[in-house]
Write a protein that binds this DNA or RNA. Structure first.
Lengths: 150, 150
DNA sequence: GTACCTGCAAAACCTTTGCAGCATC
DNA sequence: GATGCTGCAAAGGTTTTGCAGGTAC
């Protein structure tokens, strides 16, 4: 019946609870209390969250459930892991209208979203041609000492 | 006596066994069979290696020793972790003369080094000014399907 | 000879899965 | 009512540490 959107390039029109719920529905998945809460938590997050943090902020779901919900969202390409160079994974929602890179303080760990235009986007086309890759996405993080830690 | 080079921006003049051995010596660390072998293995590597791979290729050191040697090299800033989006860490040496970004195939996992000039380097100065960060480095990986997997 | 490094083993962590009961559609 | 989701518990992997003996200097 409903088709997997796994190969879909841009599964969302916009980043909102409704849009994500609609996506779940289109894919034949159920809208549960846990999923709503987790999505809501991610929408409010000011930085990428670990599974632990999502569970704490959500205040309800089991850790394994958080893991499974995040796996679902990742497969639907509305969430992605962010590399913060730590021992566990951090997740954030993917905004279809706006791509953010991250600046991570190596001392205090605080994550800053970079609002400037992304320097890597232009290169993706070049890589498709020169290296023969397709379906390219990228992950760009800057690490350094923030003003307070300097 | 010898000073920590932790804050040093460019601990190496060039990427060679001698240069790294000299750095270890300057920092009061011992030159051991294991360390030589591991550094040699990393110098020959055509891609970032996991602790497992380093141990296998080195063919001698204990896993915990590989871990500890890599931690030392990372602290001296001659090695760094690379984000391949897998379940374990991958390491590569840092070349002071040449910075490489990576293109990772999401199907077969093969890692390609990107020889083009890095699009993120120019942005680092801007981040120092605009966001007040210092000692900036970055990590940039492209993910996509390689020609063979398409 | 001293201080550091290593191997072995175990602990600590994070991620992933099995399964029975529960909730959504 | 059927199917998919959840909680609990346990297993699976990777990373990290303690400690006694070995090695570089």
């Amino acid at each position: 019946m409903t088709r997997q959107t796994h190969a879909n390039q841009c599964p969302l029109e916009e980043l909102s609870l409704n849009a994500i719920v609609e996506l779940l529905r289109r894919n034949g998945m159920r809208i549960t209390r846990n999923r709503i809460r987790i999505i809501d938590t991610l929408l409010r997050a000011e930085k990428p969250l670990s599974l632990d943090e999502i569970q704490t902020r959500t205040g309800a779901a089991d850790y394994a459930t958080v893991f499974r919900v995040m796996t679902v969202l990742e497969n639907l390409q509305v969430a992605q892991k962010v590399n913060l160079n730590r021992s566990c994974s951090y997740y954030e929602l993917v905004n279809p209208k706006q791509h953010y890179d991250h600046i991570i303080c190596t001392e205090c760990g605080r994550v800053t979203l970079m609002i400037d235009s992304c320097p890597a986007e232009k290169v993706e086309r070049k890589i498709e041609k020169r290296y023969g890759f397709s379906d390219i996405r990228h992950s760009l993080e800057f690490f350094g000492k923030c003003r307070e830690c300097s």
